[in-house]
Amino acid sequence: MINSQINILAQAKSYLHSVTSTQYRAVISPLFISSAGQHIRHILDHYIAIKEAIHSGTINYDKRSRGGTIETDIDAAMAQLDEIEEFLLSLSKIQLQQTIQLSTEVSVEKKQVEVVDTTLARELIFVGSHAIHHFAMIGQISKAQKLTIPEQFGIAPATATFMRDEQCAP
């Protein structure tokens, strides 16, 4: 569980090492409405929500740091990734199974917040999948910038298994 999350964070670090600050901050319109940096910040906001839930008992993915330095500063993003990795490595099996609350808005028509029980492990699975989804979008931004990205960047684990199985098929 934790190793898979560390591997996901390693993909983000690899991406950050491969781009310039200008590429990281660029919004390639009209194809995209956000930069790769904004996607990275959004991913990290979700991990930070889990980290904060250890103390508060509630995960709130709606709390975001839009416009923060992580969106524009590669070094700040790398530092946050390192902090999140350290946090993940500190988690015990007992903590992963502990019940916590998830508070989230569920309507676009009006403010409607629902609170449900979940576990830290289940939410880590979600944020990992969420990160991969955003990596796929960053991959498309990178292609629009004519950048080379690793073949597995933004590929979901089940998709990777499907692709391996297809290669082995007679």
Rank of each mutant, 00 (worst) to 15 (best):
I43E: 03
R25I: 07
S56N: 05
L31V: 03
S56G: 04
S29L: 12
I2H: 07
V27D: 06
Q38D: 00
E52N: 14
Y47E: 04
R25S: 14
A10F: 05
K63P: 02
N60E: 13
S4W: 00
F32A: 07
S56C: 08
Y15N: 02
H55Y: 01
G68I: 01
Y15C: 01
N60C: 12
I40S: 01
L31G: 11
S65W: 01
Q5I: 04
I28S: 11
Y61V: 10
Y47V: 01
N3H: 09
V27Y: 04
H42P: 09
T20M: 08
I8L: 04
H55N: 06
Y47T: 02
I28D: 09
S21P: 12
G37C: 11
Y15H: 00
N60S: 12
R25Y: 03
I2F: 03
D62N: 15
K13D: 14
L44T: 07
L31I: 01
H46W: 07
K63N: 14
T58L: 02
V19T: 13
I33R: 14
G37I: 05
K13S: 14
A26R: 13
K13T: 13
G68S: 15
H17E: 10
H17F: 09
Q5E: 11
H39S: 04
E52P: 02
S14D: 09
S29E: 15
Q38I: 01
R25N: 13
I40T: 10
S35E: 07
K51M: 10
Q11R: 12
A10P: 03
N3S: 10
G67L: 06
I40Q: 01
Q38E: 11
L9D: 13
T20I: 09
K13I: 07
R41F: 04
A49W: 02
Q11S: 10
L16G: 12
Y61W: 12
